[in-house]
Amino acid sequence: MLELKNIRKTFNAGTVNEKVALNGVTLTLQDGEFVTIIGGNGTGKSTTLNAVAGVFPIDSGSILIDGIDVTRLPEYKRAKYLGRVFQDPMTGTAGNMNIEENLALASRRGKSRSLRWAVTPKEREFFRSKLASLGLGLEQRMTTKVGLLSGGQRQALTLIMATLEKPKLLLLDEHTAALDPKTAAKVLEISDQIIAENHLTAMMVTHNMRDAIMHGNRLLMFYEGRIILDIAGEEKKKLKVEDLLHEFEKLSGEQFSNDRALLG
């Protein structure tokens, strides 16, 4: 479903702020794989997701989604294949627009937009049923401005928006990091549910090792812009946080110093 071939990206090349963000990332995702991604700050996890989404052009390498080379496609054209949820709950939705308008925008992802009316009554009913499945009562607040929702509600809405039109790949970029633990757990539960129901291929970046182990069916660890660990299947099911820490120290030859990751 996704093929990354030796992706490289250096930010601020040739300046004192030069930062090698991606140092040859190669990865193949099969249809239906749900991969969790861990690693310290600045190791290339989110950069990889952003490279796939086309937020910036990559220096070298290629990106194929379902066999289609998207390496040179602008962000808005790749959106056709991708569902995205971001770390900041503000990023995924239009705060000045109401819930049904946001959903209507999402339902046109990858389609041409014309001078037809943006929200039809039939769609409104469809949106209502989708929202009802969240169990947050949002279906009663279809004309509420999204800016008035809580962070957790916005992330849940963004998840629905990202999957309203089935994406070839769902990108979850630390989408629970800005939420309180209880809300984060709820949003993760909703994510699992949506991925399972729609048989989605997904990538989820997280700082929480336990979440990375408990969710998905494949786990990647990033270090210095590369994938240093790739565990799937039965092996992943048996994985423990200590194993990950041990692996990390062995492979990187360093004490794992990220507090947030340890807290996992």
Partner: peptide, 23 residues
């Protein structure tokens, strides 16, 4: 109120979200 009009509103409100929705 049309699809195009909505996409302009989204562009002004949150360009990152707009691009993620293929706008």
């Amino acid at each position: 109120g049309t699809e195009v009009g909505h996409s302009i509103r989204a562009t002004g409100n949150n360009p990152n979200m707009a691009r993620a929705q293929g706008i």
